[in-house]
Design a protein around this nucleic acid. Structure first.
Length: 305
DNA sequence: TTCCGACAGTGGGGTCGCAAT
DNA sequence: ATTGCGACCCCACTATCGGAA
């Protein structure tokens, strides 16, 4: 069961609110104290997380999120190094040096009894009674006050909030309107230094390459493609055509230039981007295009931000 | 008839594993 | 031994289509 992107935080006693954890969704199938872990795409990822193999609870099916806590906050970058590891020996070594935590927020089966038909409120009560907490497994709190939690997650730089209707049944695989997510996706302005065509096309804009104005010059901060397809692509193409340049305006090397095909432009166009902050390598994370800033020039961004 | 949800297809960063080089 | 690419993980967004309202 997945959450739908919400636009207004629901209020009232019918809803509870949880922290949106920045990690990897997982179903933990517990049999005789041993957990088998399934990813969202129904891949068996048990070998990647050996420290989660032992769960001291009766047989059942738990729903949760695997996170790599770094100074108390989930680090998706740290988790990324763990989650593709399919070699048991290497996974064990990584579990030693960079352990992960399973945060459980739902109970879908208890013994032979399927609980998906019960309201969330009752599943949650049964989960808390089960108390699966160990050194590497916790049941994070659910809160009544959504606004408070949203503000707290903003201040603590957590990913956001998921609001759930207490009466909702669990529908496996469904993107439910009874689960609403509110990620913090701050908007920022960047200078376009190039673009790449949509795959299978030479002329349609598939993504723009954006950079940050620094005293040293334009520093590459990533590609932005999401949100450009459709009506925006031809508009961008028209704006970028007169800016065509021979060489890259970025002071640092841009990766995968040849692989995806890249056209350079003079750094004059400013665009707005929403993102989930930055990756380890200071690239925009999960960026989406929000529009052209005809009211701004690169000079306006220098020193600001 | 209109509207909405599911799906497919586009795009992003990042990592690992493996086949090709 | 190195490199490139696909398969995963996290996603956002748009267009389309079929069924519900």
């Amino acid at each position: 069961m997945l959450a739908t992107r919400g636009d207004r935080l629901p209020a009232g006693a019918e809803w509870c609110h949880e922290v949106k954890w920045d990690g990897m969704r997982v179903l933990a199938e517990v049999t005789s104290g041993r957990a088998r872990l399934w990813s969202r795409n129904e891949n068996d990822v048990t070998v990647s997380f050996p420290e989660l193999a032992g769960l001291d609870v009766p047989d059942g099916l738990l729903d949760g999120e695997v996170v790599a806590l770094d100074a108390g906050r989930p680090s998706f970058g740290a988790l990324a190094e763990r989650m593709h590891q399919r070699n048991a020996r290497r996974a064990a070594a990584l579990a030693e040096s960079r352990p992960v935590t399973l945060l459980v927020f739902d109970l879908l089966r208890e013994g032979d009894r399927d609980l998906t038909g019960l309201p969330l409120e009752q599943r949650r009560a049964r989960l808390e009674r089960l108390d699966p907490a160990t050194a590497s497994c916790q049941v994070p709190a659910a809160y009544d006050d959504g606004e408070m939690l949203l503000e707290a997650t903003r201040q603590q730089q957590l990913e956001g909030v998921v609001s759930k209707r207490l009466s909702s049944r669990y529908v496996p695989g469904a993107r439910s309107p009874h689960w609403l997510k509110f990620p913090h996706r701050p908007r920022s302005s960047w200078v376009v230094g190039g673009w790449r065509p949509e795959t299978g096309s030479t002329d349609r804009v598939g993504a723009v390459l954006v950079g940050e104005v620094t005293p040293a010059g334009l520093v590459f901060r990533g590609r932005v493609g999401s949100g450009i397809a459709g009506r925006t692509a031809p508009v961008l193409r028209a704006l970028l055509a007169p800016l065509a340049a021979e060489r890259s305006p970025f002071v640092d090397p841009v990766p995968r230039v040849d692989a995806v095909g890249t056209r350079w432009v003079r750094p004059e166009l400013v665009v707005d981007v929403e993102s989930l902050g930055f990756s380890h390598h200071d690239r925009l994370r999960q960026p989406s295009f929000r529009g052209v800033r005809t009211d701004l020039t690169p000079a306006d961004l220098a020193g600001g931000e």
